[in-house]
């Protein structure tokens, strides 16, 4: 097995007295597409947000391509200086449920923003790159409009382009289609599928189980404060071994036809 792009070991996170997870280990190999499933409130978002340190874990270790992030201390807790946060986040792309585009910038401005402000590129090449990324998500012709003029599906595709422009080593998607009208889900899933086919490494929190089955190579089911069951889509989705996974999937199938 090749060296993992991302390795989480012993990751723990609580909010006050609410322990979200206690001991998460996960290796993500290059090209892995791991779908993260689980009930509402089970900690899927929190886990994802710990990976790019939007939430600071209470304990455990994050390694990105062999680099240990932060300064581990004897207590098991690591300290994450501001500079390390920024370095890590440059290398990890994140797409949010609510898109979170910058409304005061054009579409191309949104995509180029990280290149210019964070990576210090000059605006000409940054715009070229932004246009290329917009092309990839099929929105080059929207480059000079403002986000308020876009549909939800288009906004989310811009958000994906914005993350891709930074050349991330791994992409994180937190329910990228949950805020969309059903009619707009397809175009966003199409873009994510295309990224998967290109061999991008990604963690994808989703409720689209059918999509997860087709696109992911591994499924991680979250429950009881950790990764409850993990395996190939066939293993976890077709023949789940553990009770909570079975219940969750049965619940999801209830209204299918």
């Amino acid at each position: 097995m090749p060296d993992p792009i991302l390795r989480l070991s012993g990751l723990a996170k609580s909010f006050d007295t609410n322990t979200v997870f206690e001991d998460v280990d996960l290796d993500v190999a290059p090209g892995d597409r791991i779908a993260i499933l689980g009930a509402s409130g089970s900690g899927k978002s929190t886990l994802l947000r710990c990976v790019n340190l939007l939430e600071i874990p209470d304990a455990g270790r994050i390694e990105l391509n062999g680099d240990v992030v932060g300064n581990p201390e004897k207590s098991g807790r690591a300290r994450y200086p501001e500079r390390e946060l920024r370095e890590l986040r440059k290398r990890v792309g994140m797409v949010f449920q609510q898109f979170n585009l910058f409304p005061h910038m054009t579409v191309a401005g949104n995509v180029a923003e990280g290149l210019v402000t964070v990576l210090g590129q000059s605006s000409g090449p940054a715009r070229e790159r932004a246009l290329a990324e917009l092309d990839r998500v099929g929105l080059r012709d929207k480059a000079d409009t403002y986000p308020s003029r876009l549909s939800g599906g288009q906004k989310q595709r811009v958000a994906i382009a914005r993350a891709l422009a930074m050349d991330p080593e791994i992409m994180l998607f937190d329910e990228p289609t949950s805020a969309l009208d059903p009619a707009l889900v397809g175009e966003v899933l199409g873009v994510i599928e295309q990224l998967a086919n290109e061999g991008r490494t990604m963690l994808l929190v989703t409720h689209e189980i059918g999509f997860a089955y087709h696109v992911a190579n591994r499924i991680a089911f979250i429950a009881e404060g950790g990764i409850y069951e993990i395996g190939t889509p066939d293993e976890v989705l077709k023949n789940p071994r553990r009770e909570k996974t079975q219940k969750f999937l049965a619940e999801h199938r209830r209204f299918q036809f």
Partner: peptide, 19 residues
């Protein structure tokens, strides 16, 4: 969400405020 997406592309506090 604005603060978070700015942080997520690697902006520091001053950049995030200014931009």
């Amino acid at each position: 969400g604005q603060w978070e997406s700015a942080k997520a592309i690697g902006m520091g506090h001053n950049q995030l405020m200014r931009r």
